[in-house]
Amino acid sequence: MNVHTTDIAIIGAGPCGLFAVFEAGLLGLKCHLIDSLPLPGGQLTEIYPKKPIYDIPGLPSILASELVSNLMKQIAPFKPEFTLGETVVDLKRQTEEFELVTNQGTLIRSKVIAIAAGLGNFEPRKPLIDDITKFENKGIDYIIPDPEKYRNKKLVISGGGDSALDWAIFLTDIAKSVSLIHRRTEFRGAPESVNKVKQLVQSGKIELITNAEVKELSGSTHLESVKIHTDDGTVIEKALDYFIPLFGLVPKLGPIADWGLKLNKSAIEVNTFDYSTNIPGIFAIGDINTYEGKLKLILCGFHEATLMVQSAYKIIHNGKDPSFKYTTVTGIKELS
């Protein structure tokens, strides 16, 4: 089992979680960030990386992806640890500390937890097919952690966006066969990907079925075949090893809802003194929290992170107050 010990475990590696590392680092506190997405940045990376943000103080305009890479640079001296692509599924209070466990079995121990989970957990958008949950991880994958799994396998991919197109292209070199199922005739992915798919269809490397949807699944323990219904009423049965629906991700609150935190409409209620929750030692910052006058803005989350770490310091150092210093005076002291 992968075990980590840190001062503050931060659930969510979006902008507020990342900036909390900086403010904690100024106080000499180490952080470990956990995020279900494979890359840091949260919504900025997943939803709008190429959109400009205009309300970050001192930055008249910055692309969301640039803000994330700047934050990563800003926190680098404090050497945060990351567990990415894993979801926190369990939180337990031990006598002196908390224990967080991810869906991959990683264990993180810390005295303080900061929930900076934004909109919650990004989960795959699942097609509306009966029995789909029965075959999850038994022939149905919504994400592709390791393409080698599909070597010499028969694949059916559905979806019409960039991720469906890019994976269909990539997997033609690995899989035995790739069928791409799309609900419309036109693809709305990046033009170069659309052209590449068209070439691969012409050369027979991708079988393309348009105006069609996978509607039925069958198999005993593992998925064995799917039935594809086309708009003209034809039903095509296809034997396969894996069905990979790629329809993007949607945020869900997920396991956070089960930890005994006081919630108000899917947001965690906090005390605006230090953004503490009803559970001592657990704080919530950024879009996931709520209080009177709350605005879901990155800049507000940065402020929340700053105040939060002051109280976190006291908990970690048994009631001792942190000494407040300006970075202009002290500079940045790297953590080991």
């Binding site: 709008y48 993007g248 945020p251």
Partner: peptide, 13 residues
């Protein structure tokens, strides 16, 4: 209605 992306036509909620 969640309105997750704040109105960028990017979340579909």
């Amino acid at each position: 209605v969640m309105g997750t992306c704040g109105g960028l036509a990017l979340c579909g909620s």
